[in-house]
Design a protein around this nucleic acid. Structure first.
Lengths: 353, 353
DNA sequence: CTGAAAGCGCTTACAG
DNA sequence: CTGAAAGCGCTTACAG
């Protein structure tokens, strides 16, 4: 592969001059510039980013460590992150932790070894030593979606509290009183917060959230299935299962189906994190939708701000409830939720007779 | 951040010795080794991968350019690629082309500039000049899923021919005679092959595939919707729509639903590329499943083989038909397809009454 | 077993 | 405007 030396030789100038034209430095004679450009063209020369990074001490690369690529929520997040980063002149390297702290650590380490300019992370756990070190050592960092309390790092996330309240209001209005939740790992903020928000919203209606109605999941489908089976085995099973993410909702659906039961007739189901397929599941699933694309973009802007020496503001965006049919029929033919600006068909429109 | 010099000073040895112990070189005295290790520990030293790459001319990194991260098929492919690469000591950088040739080019260029050791690509189009150049220039490369004819690069893919034949047999057995397809871009091999396989399979039953029944899609949901609307507007609409990927099937579902029609009663639907949600859609969707994980792993092995000077064998794995209910009820209570080793519930088991 | 030195491909003060 | 030179952080023949 041609190097800058080859280009210099071909153009009859020094490597310094080649470097200057490549970097748009103003003090280069028009003649030199054209000769260099011609040489670049002739040799198909492309600057070696590795060498450039070593010299300039910046890689123009962002690391993104997500908890699970197979979760459409994170996939969409990753896509918007890459998009915004590209717009700002950065590349992004994604590390998938698969909800495993050890894998998360592996990726953080690898990314740091590559000297990425900044790190975006949605922590799988309470924070590995490596990540905490990085934060303390001053690596520009921003948390997205999930975060670690007590660490001085901006966090870009969405607040589902209001949406969860809307959901509970919706469920209560439908006559449901025994509501259960499949929680995410207690080590994650989203794992804890969604349970807290749910409990709080239930409290407003004088409803309890007994321990038996809190199933411990891990944000993966398998746990959703197991927890739901446990709920169904209870002497008094819940009337509603609220899954704290879409994959656990998938597992819940599997469990209900395996018993030959039906949603919402036998048990209602709702999920955190909306996905396109929820419109077409049987029945369409009521879900809380995050402004995923906005989160990804805001996170990148905050991180780039930090990289450039800024403070990197934290951002919290609201989530919203999207009512469909998985919790039962609405009382009126119109959407009872004033918080649903969804352009999707009215929830009472049935896709099955 | 501590450099190798700092470690050498701390340990009281030369940087050469530090480098040797870091790289497991045998000729280092036990004493020097322990001192170096202690210094590394004390300083929290981590080798700079950028510098190492510049010096060794290898990055231990693979590039993966996929057509669309939002497509679960590619997400799963990416995951298995990363997994196998990690097992072999490589990192992978993913570039998402979003089915756009210009974006694909951007990522190929960026990846090459970073001097990745090898490139795995599922081309969005007939092959950009940059990619063709890279292949010709000897960059170790392997095509996954989609490929470009006439380029001397191994391809790891799955052959859906037999599964498509099974699908057509299934449809024919159900009494369907007017079968349509939503094709992928003609510039992609999978876009062309799936139509060819479909036409061929129809031919075996003496069924035609008229132009009006070939809709041109782009592997995105929107095109699936538009094409399906076109089909439904035909004086003689098809009885079956076969979507060449899962996202276009989603669009088709949207279109059918928007008309207040039902699958399979009003029109049957089948898709290429199975996803977990297809079990829970209304109705469960009959699909052709690729051995995605195996493809990803085989592709990495082929690429690493190339990188290490091997030939990098091409691999073709069979896809299989998974019958569900979206094409109508099977005649017997048992799965009529002998090609479906799926552990999923029997296709005639109804999840809705 | 160990260290001094060269060099990977760049960028960038410093002189001119 | 231009070039020679230093240096980024490593690895690795070459001598000893």
């Amino acid at each position: 592969m041609a190097s800058i030396k080859d280009v210099a030789a071909e153009a009859g100038v020094s490597v310094a001059t080649v470097s200057r034209v490549l970097n748009g430095h103003p003090s280069v004679s028009p003649d030199a510039r054209t000769r260099v450009l011609a040489a670049v063209e002739a040799l198909g020369y492309r600057p070696n980013a590795v060498a450039r990074s070593l010299r300039t001490a910046q890689t123009r690369t962002l690391g993104l460590v997500i908890s699970d690529v197979l979760n459409p929520y994170f996939t969409e997040l990753a896509r918007s992150v890459e998009e915004e980063a590209r717009a700002l002149g950065y590349s992004v390297i994604i590390g998938n932790a698969d909800e495993r702290p050890d894998l998360q650590d592996h990726h953080v380490t690898t990314l740091l070894d590559r000297r990425i300019d900044g790190l975006l992370v949605s922590p799988t756990d309470g924070g590995s030593p490596r990540m905490l070190d990085a934060a303390r050592a001053g690596t520009p960092m921003v948390f997205v979606d999930r975060w670690i309390p007590g660490v001085d790092v901006p966090v870009v996330r969405s607040d589902g509290r209001a949406a969860v309240r809307d959901l509970v209001a919706h469920l209560h209005g439908l006559g449901h009183r025994r509501l259960a939740i499949i929680a995410g790992p207690a080590a994650t903020t989203t794992g804890r917060e969604r349970v807290d928000a749910f409990r709080e919203a239930l409290g407003a209606y004088g409803l309890p959230l007994p321990d038996a109605y809190i199933g411990q999941g891990d944000f993966q489908a398998g746990s959703g299935r197991r927890v739901t089976e446990g709920f169904l085995d209870l002497p008094e099973p819940p009337e509603v299962v609220f899954a704290a993410d879409n994959l656990m909702a998938l597992g819940a659906l599997d469990a209900v189906r395996a018993r030959g039961m039906r949603v919402p007739d036998d048990i209602a189901l709702a999920a955190f994190d909306d996905i396109r397929w929820f419109v077409h599941t049987d029945p369409p699933i009521t879900a809380i939708a995050q402004p995923t694309g906005d989160l990804g973009r805001a996170a990148v802007r905050a991180l780039v701000d930090r990289i450039e020496g800024g403070a990197g503001e934290s951002v919290t965006l609201p989530a919203r409830l999207v009512v469909r049919r998985s919790c039962g029929e609405a009382a009126s033919p119109h959407d009872p939720s004033p918080h649903d600006p969804s352009p999707s068909p009215s929830p009472v429109r049935r896709s099955t007779p």
